[in-house]
Write a protein that binds this DNA or RNA. Structure first.
Lengths: 342, 342
DNA sequence: TTGAAAGCGCTACCAA
DNA sequence: TTGGTAGCGCTTTCAA
């Protein structure tokens, strides 16, 4: 344990000063090619790997970034977003010698505390701001803390000092509604996410605008919480109304599947009696019957872009907002022409 | 940034030596109560938080542990195990001031390299060994590296120097088979996981033993890879045989659901024509119709126990293997009496 | 281009 | 019980 190879050993073996060894190893200029080669050889002979601890302390960087997932922990199970998102993050982080510190919080104030700690003990050099709230308190907190950050899928808000990495879903939702309208649907409902989320609002606005654009009146809106159960409840509510919507655009797949399953349970046929669409493009949507028409997002690509943006922000670069290619409509079996009686 | 409060400031304000401040703050003995109180007050006045970087370097600990998830990254999406497992880990880590470093690898040798790096640059103090293989090369690697570890859900292998944290599923699989046998099933098939996994084998052995115990002959075995698709393929294979099994015990829920959906697609009724059972207890099993009879595991509890074990191992304690309460049979709709003709 | 040395902020040893 | 002080292993001036 204590017999670890340090830069001192490397310098000694190469017959140079420690500072030269450091410069050589880190690709800094000011060392002759000969010296650099000798140092490199010595390092590889000795199997030298720099201690991240010492490096962190002296370089004043943690070489790690943080992701705080705020979620009632049981709910996380059903949310496949993070797996792929984290995969994308890791992909670029690993290449840069950075690591991901993953934290979990079940409530908002707990999450705030995690950010505070992460900053106070300097465990990370920057963080991801996922699932933004309207007037998200984390923004101001991180600004105060001076911790670099990137926001994920937020709108470009003027006051916010952090770059945003997004995948637009607006166009795809327009496509969804357009598809339904062309199929003859007139009463198109929406199952929304909690209003506090920026992306819930964006999806609802997109639905709203698309419906108007199609020359239709807005159907009823049910506000869920992105869970299967709330999709189920949405069906109970919307399908029991005197005049049923013939199509329901849901703000995520899990709610759409909950809705769909309950509709089937009520004896309705999909899409003959009611069309259902989701958002996300999770695998579950292909397991159910009928398979779910949805908007396919790219969490992995998003994660990679977010990581690149965050690393750039940490390096102090002036990073612009980035938009990855927009989400795409994927038409499957849960959408079709409305009942003629409607 | 540079104006960070350090222990020097705290010591100065409290009018004591740095070493005393350190001792006081860390609850070490050898400081008077009065001094300790003064130091604590000074620290809180100043909003002092120790720098993890300096602490790490001097204490020779990273205050972080690693989890390397080895998975074809797209597959991860559908696997809800890790969300809850990580939740459990985080729960105990956070309380101890430790953090979780999450890494991803898509192939085995890539994963090995991640462990090697984690150890070489000393990013973590220990790691979780999940999804153990038979003769897992990671064991020897970590032993060589001298990195503390705990194995998750492995068998107690004599040669392995790491404590194991497990949840037994054997009894529950016996219960599954017992249930089926009592219902009159005689041909009970198994959809297994890849043979290289320790837990695949354990589940298969449990099925095998339980079938024998029920006085039955083993039904056919299909080896899948824990994906929905492989469950689907299993159905294609097993249900097309001349003599169909009347019940199928799957090694995880995702395969069970794939099997179930395909069986339905083939026009079979469940459980009237064929009973299907899973293992894991994921939410998906309650979304499908019929709902899935399964063995419910507790990944969250497992994660918490694993984290406790790992921290103890890091502290150098001699930690015993721990078994959390066993997985439980959950009977739902996908099991019932076999067809009379069978 | 090279090397000596001063930190980075903390822990822990050893005298006092 | 207290207070110096020598590391921990690296980066980064600043002279030579």
């Amino acid at each position: 344990m204590g017999n670890r190879v340090t830069i001192v050993d490397v310098a000694e073996r190469a017959g140079v000063a420690i500072s030269s060894a450091s410069a050589a190893l880190n690709g800094r200029t000011g060392v002759s090619d000969k010296t650099r080669a000798r140092v490199r050889a010595a390092a590889s002979d000795l199997g030298y790997v720099a201690s991240l601890r010492a490096k962190s302390l002296s370089a004043q960087r943690a070489f790690a970034v943080g992701l705080v997932v705020e979620r009632a922990i049981d709910v996380l199970e059903a949310d496949p977003f993070f797996g792929a998102f984290i995969g994308g993050i890791e992909e670029v982080l690993a290449a840069e010698g950075y690591a991901l510190v993953l934290q979990m919080a079940s409530k908002a104030d707990e999450a705030m505390q995690r950010y505070r700690d992460l900053s106070a003990n300097r465990r990370v050099d920057g963080v991801f701001l996922n699932e933004l709230l309207v007037d998200d308190p984390r923004i101001m907190l991180l600004e105060e803390l001076g911790l670099p950050a990137v926001t994920i899928n937020s709108n470009r808000v003027p006051g916010v000092p952090f770059p945003s990495v997004r995948q637009d879903g607006t166009q795809a939702i327009h496509d969804v509604v357009g598809l339904l309208a062309r199929q003859g649907h007139v009463r198109i409902a929406h199952v929304a996410g909690p209003v506090r989320f920026v992306h819930s609002r964006a999806r609802r606005r997109a639905w709203s605008a698309a419906v108007a654009e199609a020359g239709l009146r807005e159907g009823p809106v049910f506000t869920g919480d992105f869970t299967y159960e709330s999709g189920w409840r949405a069906a109970a509510k919307l399908l029991r109304a005197d005049v049923r919507p013939t199509a329901v655009v849901c703000a995520n797949d899990l709610m759409a599947v909950g809705f769909l399953m309950h509709a089937l349970e009520l004896g309705l046929r999909i899409p003959e009696d009611v069309s259902v669409t989701g958002f996300d493009g999770i695998a579950l949507g292909t397991y159910v019957r009928p398979t779910l028409t949805t908007v396919k997002t790219a969490p992995r690509t998003l994660g990679a872009a977010a990581a690149r943006g965050l690393l750039a922000a940490i390096r102090g670069e002036n990073v612009a907002d980035v938009d990855i290619p927009p989400a795409q409509l994927v038409v499957r079996e849960s959408t079709g022409a409305p009942p003629v009686s409607a």
